[in-house]
Each structure stands twice: as C-alpha cells, then as structure tokens.
Nucleic acid binder design. Structure first.
Length: 427
DNA sequence: AATTATGACAACCGCCATCTC
DNA sequence: AGAGATGGCGGTTGTCATAAT
C-alpha cells in the first residue's frame, strides 16, 4: 500500500527531464489538462511515471511560476511562516505567489537555515540558540511532517482556536487592520530581522495561525482551499498600505483567462482554478502611484515578472535592507532575457542547450501567456498551431518556436509594457 | 591543472489521506 | 467495509556548477 503502481513498471525514465520530455508534457497538459496523472505519461508519450510528471509540472512547467532568486521580503516571509507553520512547505508556498514548496524547501535547507544559525537563531525553534542549547526550548515548532498536524494541535493552535477569532478569519479574509492584537510572538523579538519596515502592519503569530486554521477549516479533502478567497492576499498584509483597488491595477479575480477551465476537456485541476499562486498574483495590490489612470487595467498575468522588493540572493542578502516595497521590473524580461532572445544567436558560447533551455522555455511561456489571454477560447488550438512543435521534433525547433512565439507576444504587448514602464519610470 | 568542498537545484522515495469501486 | 489507486506532502538524495585548495 502506498506505493504507486506505476513505480513498478519497467523502462521508466528517471532523472533529469529533457526538453523533449518537457515539451511533450507541456503540450499534453495545455491541450488536455492532466486529468489522471497516472494516465498522463502514456497519453503524452512519456516514459515516466505519473507522479514524476505531476512533480515536473508543479515544480517546473507550470506557467505561473516565478522562479529566480528570492527577494528579501520573500525570505523574511518564509522565516515568519516557518516559525508558525513549521516544515509545512506547501502551506508556506501557498503564501508566496509563484513559488513552489520544493523551491522554498530547498531555499530553507540550503540557505535560510544557515543564515539563521549565523544570527544565533535556531532554525527549528526560531529561538536564540543559547536558549535552545540551555534546554529552555526543546520542543521545536516543526516536528517532522508526519507529526506536524498533531503539532499544530498543540498549544499554539489551541490558544488560537478561539471561536471568534477563527470565525473572524473565515468571514473576513481581509488581513487584520493595525488594530489587531499588538502582541508580537516571540520569534519576532528574537530575530534580528523584521518584516519589511514599510509594512503597514506586523503580522502576528495569531494572524498566521488564524489564516492557517481558516484555510483548513474551509477546505475539505485537501490542504488547498476550494475557494480562492480562502487565500487572502498576503500582499495586502505586506504591502497593503498603499493598496488601492482603484489604483489602476484593476485585477481580474480568478485564474488567468488564457487557462480558462473551459478549455479543458478533463476535469480542471484545482491547481489552476483555485491555485493560490494564480489568485495571489492576480490580486496582488502592489503599491502604485495613485495617478495611474483608473481605467488602465492590467491582468497581472500580463506582467508576471513584476516583482516586489529587492532581488536579494540568498548568498548576498545580508544587505537586504530594503525599506520599502519597490515595484521593479525583473531583469529577466525587461533587460536581457526576453528582449534579447532575438539576439540569442549571438550568444551560442557553446553552452549546452539543455542547460539554458529551461530559462528560455519559461520566459517564452510566460510571455506567451498574455497572447493566450487575449483569446482564451481557442487556446489549445493556437498552441498547437503556433508552437508547431511535435513530440518528435528536436529541441531546437522547440526553442525556435518558443522564441518566435515570445517575439509575437512581445509585439502584441509591447505597448502595454511601455505604458507600464512609462507609468513607473522603471525602464 | 587537478582535486576537493560547497551550494543550489531538481528529482526521487516513502508515507499518509482521500477517493473510488 | 475494505482494498487498491491516486494525489499530495515532506525528507532525502543525486547532479551539476562553481569556488577553494
């Protein structure tokens, strides 16, 4: 029990995915959805198990992934969330638009843990190491995953399961106003970092727990809520001071139209119709100048690489003292990666195709999304005809087609980008 | 230049919860 | 009700690139 039948099958490929495999999987899912994952590899012509396909899609191919280095805000948020949720990476990831649990987990294990230790903080308990070593705090917040649910049932949760508070969380998913209980949970006091200085409110442990409990109470069979509203836009929490629904970034709730569930013959997966990532992105009330024409409406999916905050890398984030949220263009689009695709030929440098393929792939896909957003209905036909790759085509064709596609997308939305750029003066 | 250490990331493994028959 | 199938999650391992020696 517990072991997937597909895992017993022979001749299944393992290890890194090739561009061809990615292409096949993407092509299949964009056309038909994944339906039952176990049937995906067969239908897509892949020698992989369904589980592997699912993982590849979720962690890598999904078009709403942000990728790139984590900003300082994201790192801080991860630390804060981890102090409350422990190693529940999927829960943490749900609050970080465009990030996967795997990505966050890797960041935590390879980077953040180390940082915290350097700061004298125990990454498990989020308490000062001296305190932990003295045995004052021997119960880590994050027990191993299997026990974590029980762990959440400990004092932390019980303290916060006060009916009114929970109900409040359910009925009103808006982040608590500054009037919320001012008590900071211990981790805040022990850590040298703080939530971004510009935050209008400082989220408390209660707040996160309420949020967590709320999402769980409203969900039925999985950790993912069945309704997008269950994921309050944490950005409002973080950047809410200037958030204004009329600020010009009129955001369409729900999933990107280009990936409308109507397009899917299979059952639409919750990853898209309820995906907190998508919804979070779409509801991101990024602080914007108030003089943006109100009628200028951008779906966030059109500018998926607009990021907030610094782009501090984990290796060089010690200077992450960003004191205000900045809306800044991600260089990957506006500087080099996308806009230089046309110049890619000049940079062969002999770098193995596979190494850079993912970057091209993702950027092109992200850029292609707006195109699809324009005409969601015939999306999959267009994908088929426009990308013109087949499962047997070499990856170079795939690249070329992707480049072509992104170029078209750029043409179509160059004006939009220019308007955004003009508005913010970022380019 | 060769070897080793380290970091970042991708992917796999095993388990559990839920669903379906 | 129970067994198998499946989805999902977290821990762990593998791979590759780069830095250090």
């Amino acid at each position: 029990m517990g072991r997937h039948s597909c895992c017993f099958k022979q001749k299944l490929r393992k290890g890194l995915w090739s561009p061809e495999e990615d292409g096949k999987l993407l092509n299949h899912i964009t056309k038909y959805g994944h339906g039952c994952w176990s049937s995906v590899p067969k239908q897509a012509g892949l020698q992989r198990c369904g589980k592997s396909c699912r993982l590849r899609w979720i962690n890598y191919l999904r078009p709403d992934l942000k990728r790139g280095t984590f900003s300082q805000q994201e790192e801080n948020l991860i630390i804060e969330l981890h102090s409350v949720l422990g190693n529940r990476w999927s829960q943490i990831a749900a609050q970080l638009p465009g990030r996967t649990d795997n990505e966050i987990k890797n960041l935590w294990n390879s980077c953040i843990k180390k940082k915290l230790r350097q700061r004298g903080i125990d990454p498990n308990t989020h308490k000062p190491l001296s305190e932990v070593e003295n045995g004052d705090e021997k119960i880590p917040l994050n027990i191993k995953g299997k026990n974590s649910n029980q762990t959440m049932g400990n004092s932390n949760e019980s303290n916060l399961l006060e009916a009114e508070t929970v109900k409040q969380g359910i009925t009103s998913l808006e982040p608590k106003p500054p009037s919320m209980p001012p008590h900071q949970f211990p981790v805040d006091n022990s850590l040298s970092y703080k939530f971004n200085h510009s935050l209008s409110i400082t989220p408390t442990k209660d707040f996160f727990l309420n949020r967590y409990i709320t999402s769980h109470e409203n969900s039925t069979s999985s950790c993912k809520p069945s309704d997008s509203t269950e994921y309050f836009p944490l950005h409002q929490l973080n950047y809410g001071s200037n958030s204004n629904p009329n600020s010009g970034f009129s955001v369409t709730p729900g999933p990107p139209a280009w990936f409308n569930q109507n397009c899917r013959p299979f059952e639409m997966n919750s990853e898209f119709n309820t995906n907190p990532i998508s919804n979070s992105i779409l509801t991101t009330p990024i602080s914007l100048p108030s003089d943006i024409p109100p009628k200028t409406s951008y779906s966030m999916s059109r500018v998926p690489y607009w990021e907030v905050g610094s782009s501090g890398n984990c290796g060089s984030s010690s200077t992450g003292s960003t004191s205000s949220i900045e809306l800044q263009s991600n260089g990957s689009i506006f500087d080099n990666n996308v806009f230089s695709w046309g110049l890619m030929d000049k940079d062969p440098v002999g770098e193995p195709e596979e190494l850079r393929w993912s970057e091209y792939f993702h950027n092109s896909y992200v850029m292609a999304a707006p195109t699809q957003n324009q005409t969601p209905q015939p999306l999959y036909n267009e994908i088929k005809s426009e990308t013109q790759y087949t499962t047997d085509e070499p990856s170079t064709s795939w690249h070329q087609n992707q480049l072509q596609q992104s170029s078209q997308a750029l043409d179509m939305y160059g004006k939009d980008f220019q308007r955004i750029a003009a508005t913010f003066g970022q380019i």
